[in-house]
Design a protein around this nucleic acid. Structure first.
Lengths: 129, 129
DNA sequence: CACGTATATGCCTATTGGAGTATATAAAAG
DNA sequence: CTTTTATATACTCCAATAGGCATATACGTG
């Protein structure tokens, strides 16, 4: 049982995940898009499947692979403990609005209208020896 | 130049980062909190420093290590492309408010008041094989 | 200066994990 | 039933890396 971090440490696996984000894909389609040998794709998909990043459904000889959300949330949860820290450099609401710009929803649009002059960026005047 | 993902793949390094999230710490303090041999701590800190996760300031014989935000943002940015996807399982605004509960700020409190009945969770009625 | 403390580095070893290649399995097509 | 297509697996090799230990460096104290 590998940690989610070890799984996404591999560049080819991250590439596969990125390909799958648009829609489920077969091994062959991934293979072609990434110019990657088929056994390599299959092996990485196996790792990703065992780690819960993807699941596969059968379509004749093909296997369609699709993303599963849980492991991503796990990464996000780990990241959470550092958000307070790095928010000193980039305001939390600003990050939120950035995301909403990418993935607009009804609520986000409403929330955005509420955005007005933000407090001045607290630039960490730290004493660096 | 290792990717940030390879850096955080190592459990001891993640432990070190978690220790540093509260406040800057010396090598010896990290060593004691994590029950980890000193050369090991130093080596991991070196990797973390070269990857931009931490920086050190000198205090006599001690070196104080503190977190830096950039690499964490890099992870967060990578994660962003998957957020739309896993939002089908947990609404984006809800996640935002969860974060605000942990790290309340003036704006977040204001934003939270705007939260009312959210649209029904779009449960992925997918055709599984 | 000699000694203790704090940290960094060099060397060696064992392990791990990905690449490459060949092959196995399985389903469709002819 | 043979062949082709799609995917999985087995095996070998190689490189990267973490751990352990000894040692180097550097600063402070008496």
């Amino acid at each position: 049982m590998e940690s989610v971090f070890e799984i996404i440490a591999e560049p080819n696996r991250r590439a596969i995940l990125s390909v799958l984000v648009s829609s489920p894909q077969s091994v062959g389609e991934i293979e072609r898009q990434l110019h990657m040998p088929q056994p390599s794709v299959s092996k990485h998909l196996r790792v990703l499947r065992e780690a819960g990043f993807v699941e596969s459904t059968v379509d004749a000889q093909r296997r369609l692979y699709r993303l599963k959300p849980e492991p991503f949330k796990e990464v996000d949860d780990w990241l959470a403990q550092f958000r307070r820290f790095w928010s000193a450099h980039m305001d939390a609401l600003e990050r939120y609005l950035d995301r909403m710009d990418r993935f607009p929803t009804k609520e986000s649009t409403a929330a955005k209208k509420k955005k007005m002059a933000r407090p001045k960026p607290r630039t960490d005047k730290g004493e660096k020896k």
